[in-house]
């Protein structure tokens, strides 16, 4: 299993690719709503992308209160086998 830092890096790669933003501009501590400029429906797109990539099920309620990439990566990491 990858380290939490590797999960964060991959998450940033996927988010940049999916939403067409400059990867170099993304930081783990960024608020992903603000940085990516996405709404609730687009968060679901990101969730689907992340579940497929990491082969993990990430229930929506695990995202409650999560706004930054590193915390989101930690939630994913916690669910990886």
């Amino acid at each position: 299993m990858d380290s939490p830092a590797a999960t964060t890096t991959k998450l940033l790669d996927l988010a940049a690719e999916h939403f067409g933003v400059d990867r170099a501009a993304l930081r783990p501590t960024d608020d992903f709503f603000a940085t990516l400029g996405i709404d609730s429906l687009q968060v679901l797109e990101l969730l689907t992308k992340l579940e497929a990539h990491f082969s993990v099920e990430l229930p929506d309620y695990e995202l409650q209160g999560v706004t930054d990439f590193s915390t989101l990566a930690a939630r994913i990491h916690d669910r990886l086998a």
């Binding site: 689907t48 579940e51 099920e57 929506d60 309620y61």
Partner: peptide
């Protein structure tokens, strides 16, 4: 009971 969403694969 969770209101969570299920992806297409699941």
């Amino acid at each position: 009971f969770t209101g969570r969403s299920l992806n297409a694969r699941r």
